[in-house]
């Protein structure tokens, strides 16, 4: 009896060791795959930055360098003097800022109403709004374009660039999800104290919704900053372009200026990269709010 038990234990020790070494091998393999994929993901960006600091002039052919052999900001000077890049950056900042503020305000108001207030038609209106998220942008694009450009005559204005994005259904949904989790007792207490509904929203709801609002603001700002198609359609003059649209037109105008193009790409991406690293926590946690739960 005792002998059998010993044999059994020995076998399981061997099995355990085998399993342990299998685990180590697996661990090494997984790190190799991950590192490879991270490298391929990061290298284009690394290369963009390195090349933007090389003065390669207008030569169509040159050898890519892994490590910069010289340092120059000539491409940046060229990009800024040849184009209205400063104006483009200001435009992008203004447009993204206004759209973010308007989304914060209107999506919070609507999200609060849908989550915490009771009124006839509430659920129906909410579901109709939500269902429209399925409609692809292309299906509505042409009439919106004709309306904004030909009917309202708003081509080449900030209003035209911002109008369709002032509040998105996705953001209303996010705020509704977030505000459903807030305790209703606070609202009831404020109501008994005689606060008006708007005062409740401003003094009670908004202060405790800050984490949700932060996520909404960050994602709205980034996606507006990166938006290309709509501003591209409704702007004509260089002075009205956003940085993304300006960069695209620069690409078609200066086909041989790779250096300037990389400098412009860095300029367009840098604000978002800085934002990402300084608010990393919000970015990485924010994605899971409202995305899967539905």
């Amino acid at each position: 009896m005792a002998e059998i038990r010993t044999a059994d234990t020995q076998m399981s020790t061997a099995a355990l060791q085998k399993r342990e070494s299998k685990r180590t091998v697996w661990r090494v393999i997984s790190y190799v795959i991950l590192s490879f994929w991270v490298l391929v993901t990061i290298i284009p960006m690394y290369w963009m930055v390195v090349t933007s600091f090389r003065d390669i002039g207008f030569s169509a052919t040159f050898t890519p360098e892994w490590f910069p052999s010289s340092f120059s900001i000539a491409t940046y000077i060229r990009f800024f003097t040849k184009t209205d890049a400063v104006q483009w950056l200001i435009n992008s900042l203004f447009v993204s800022g206004v759209i973010t503020l308007s989304n914060v305000l209107f999506a919070s108001l609507a999200g609060y109403a849908f989550a915490k207030l009771r009124f006839p038609g509430r659920n129906m209106i909410f579901w109709v709004l939500l269902a429209t998220m399925m409609i692809p942008a292309q299906a509505t694009l042409i009439p919106i374009y004709i309306m904004v450009v030909n009917v309202f005559n708003l081509a080449d204005t900030y209003i035209a660039v911002m109008l369709p994005f002032l509040v998105t259904v996705g953001n209303i949904f996010l705020m509704k999800q977030y505000m459903s989790t807030l305790p209703s007792t606070l609202i009831d207490a404020a109501r008994i104290d005689g606060c008006s509904e708007f005062k409740i929203f401003r003094k009670v709801i908004m202060p405790i919704s800050k984490p949700g609002v932060a996520v909404l603001a960050i994602f709205t700002f980034v996606s507006t900053w990166n938006e290309f198609f709509w501003p591209f359609l409704v702007t004509n003059s260089s002075g009205m372009r956003t940085i993304q649209v300006g960069l695209a037109t620069f690409k078609f105008a200066e086909t041989v200026d790779y250096g300037g193009l990389m400098a412009g790409s860095v300029i367009a991406a840098l604000p978002m990269i800085v934002l990402f690293f300084s608010l990393q926590r919000y970015f990485l946690q924010g994605i899971t709010i409202g995305a899967v739960k539905g």
Binding site: T41, M45, W47, N226, Q244, A248, K251, A268, L275, F276
Partner: peptide, 15 residues
């Protein structure tokens, strides 16, 4: 892995 996501489609397409 999230870094390319905050960069615009324009930038990525150009690179």
């Amino acid at each position: 892995f999230y870094l390319p996501t905050v960069m615009s489609g324009v930038t990525l397409a150009l690179v």
